[in-house]
Nucleic acid binder design. Sequence first.
DNA 1: CAGGAAATTTAGTTTAGTCTAAAAGTTTCA
DNA 2: TGAAACTTTTAGACTAAACTAAATTTCCTG
Lengths: 218, 218
Amino acid sequence: MNSQSEEDYLKALYHLQMESIRVNTNSIADYLKMKPSSVTDMLKKLAEKNYVNYQKYKGTSLSKKGKLVALQIIRKHRLWETFLVEKLGFGWGQVHLIAEQLEHIKSEELIEKLDAFLGNPKYDPHGDPIPNEKGRIEKMNQKLLIELKQNQKGIITGVKRGTASLLSYLDKENIKLGDGVKVLEIIEFDGTFIVEINKRKLTFSEKICQNLLLETYD
Amino acid sequence: MNSQSEEDYLKALYHLQMESIRVNTNSIADYLKMKPSSVTDMLKKLAEKNYVNYQKYKGTSLSKKGKLVALQIIRKHRLWETFLVEKLGFGWGQVHLIAEQLEHIKSEELIEKLDAFLGNPKYDPHGDPIPNEKGRIEKMNQKLLIELKQNQKGIITGVKRGTASLLSYLDKENIKLGDGVKVLEIIEFDGTFIVEINKRKLTFSEKICQNLLLETYD
DNA sequence: CAGGAAATTTAGTTTAGTCTAAAAGTTTCA
DNA sequence: TGAAACTTTTAGACTAAACTAAATTTCCTG
């Protein structure tokens, strides 16, 4: 069993590895708001447990085993965020800190039951994909509404970062994650989209379309 | 903000205080599976923070402030247990260990939203009452056994007028006033109650249930 | 390519929460 | 009432995970 702290490091490593294969000690320290010397200590410990490939002064990368653990934490984080938004009605900005705590709860069974309860979602409310139990992330087929053409369809999976007000607008319009969208018409003049959602015809400004994330089928 | 460990001690104190006002160091150690010396250390710390009234060699009691914290943790524990059983479909035997972790998640708002999501339940799946945000447990009142539902609990306070023979039956069965009763099962067909009293499983006819008075929590 | 700047590691310290062993206080009962 | 038994506290040590300060390595630039 891994400590909360170990889990935080593995998750940080995973996120930072998106940027570059080998991750600097200092960037981990920045990310986790810790001192580089503390990071060095923990990296040695994680290397000991074969979670990372650590080489003095040369940076660190996740091992296969470490990556799996990281993905399982990310899975938990995203499932909990989905729960908080979809079931408890939290708004966006609020969920991260809470999910950061919930992701460390230890119980395989809990997370599988939660997943089922949420209807096995593929994306969290930020539109980030939710890894499966084996740590696999389904290839994303994610697009912005503005990228769609007339008659194309998609399922709302989220909104781009920093657009909390769009979320509350959608909420007010009674539009939820998972709702289907079909592009009926695109007004060339101002980029407005006429779409159908839940059998209702709606008009979305260009700005909305630039921030609304969909999963598409093509 | 209190540590997980501090919260565990306060909760233990609360439960042990049901038995006797001043709680022994050793009984806390037993309850938490720690050594008495560790308990002494923590009690001093909690006394420093005014959560407990600790007197060397004389036992410990919760202060008003400590009791409130304990009740808020118990509230969280019981709400999460309710969630696990009602929403995720766990059996009640399985939920305790998970709720023990979830009860330490820090977020007022989370717990209020969870409470609302569950429909503001008054009892958890074990029939234990859920304290409100202010730590109040609703005042107990009297009911007939027949008014109870499965898993609810009560304390025997008497029998209805004119049923002396019921009293002597109880006496013969070695059941006394003040004994706790828990409804295990209600047989729909004939209204028979299967109950647990003093760790014994007993069957009560509908007529007995119509005449046995209990003190309950709601 | 030398030397300073930046990054990283090492060494030693701190804190919270636990432990063991021993000392001190309390209770019990012959 | 006093000695044994039990309870509790004290003293000192350990571990995980952080820190600071100093030493070391690597990088970059003139």
